[in-house]
């Protein structure tokens, strides 16, 4: 009888500990940055983790101009993350005659070291995306806002 009681107690404590270990905690990531998705399932269970990428917002682009979007990665989960890939894609503009195409704004590859290791519950600024406005940019793209989607893939870093 005592043995059963002991086993139940131990199982309960372990269960609570696992639940705590999986819980996500806030990291102070601002609302603007938290468009994130992610879930992962491993062979021994499932979890729900996330990370965020935020970028600076270049201004005063003009034909022939090159600018950088400096990137910051935020890791709100309790496991260290390894960011393996980062990309940017032009998705929309604010002007009707200004199409979101490379001849109006070109997003170049990530510049910086990969992978980027982000510790649990922390942020890290690393790398950048270069954007270039070709001289062929349409007249309608004057005084326009360009929406750029930043995407990244990460895995849990080995402990």
């Amino acid at each position: 009888m005592y043995r059963w009681r002991i086993l139940v107690t131990v199982a309960t404590v372990v269960g609570c500990a696992v639940a705590l270990g999986n819980a996500e905690r806030p990291t102070g990531v601002s609302a603007q940055e938290t468009v994130l998705t992610m879930s992962g399932e491993g062979p021994r269970g499932s979890g729900h983790y996330a990370f965020a990428i935020s970028g600076t917002t270049p201004k005063d682009l003009f034909p022939g101009a090159t600018r950088k979007i400096e990137l910051t990665f935020a890791n709100p989960s309790t496991a260290a993350l390894r960011i393996n890939r980062v990309r940017g894609r032009l998705t929309a503009t604010s002007k009707a005659g200004c199409r979101p195409v490379a001849s109006n704004l070109t997003i170049k590859d990530y510049r910086g070291r990969l992978p980027v290791l982000v510790r649990p519950l922390s942020r890290k600024t690393a790398g950048s995306l270069t954007i270039f406005m070709p001289r062929s940019v349409a007249d309608a793209c004057q005084d326009a806002t360009f929406d750029i989607l930043l995407t990244g893939d990460a895995t849990k870093a080995a402990r």
Partner: peptide, 19 residues
């Protein structure tokens, strides 16, 4: 939790402005 192998993705919008 380290037993579980997983990967994560993130997508965030930012903007750039022209003059």
């Amino acid at each position: 939790t380290a037993w579980a192998g997983w990967s994560a993705g993130s997508s965030t919008a930012t903007t750039a402005r022209s003059g």
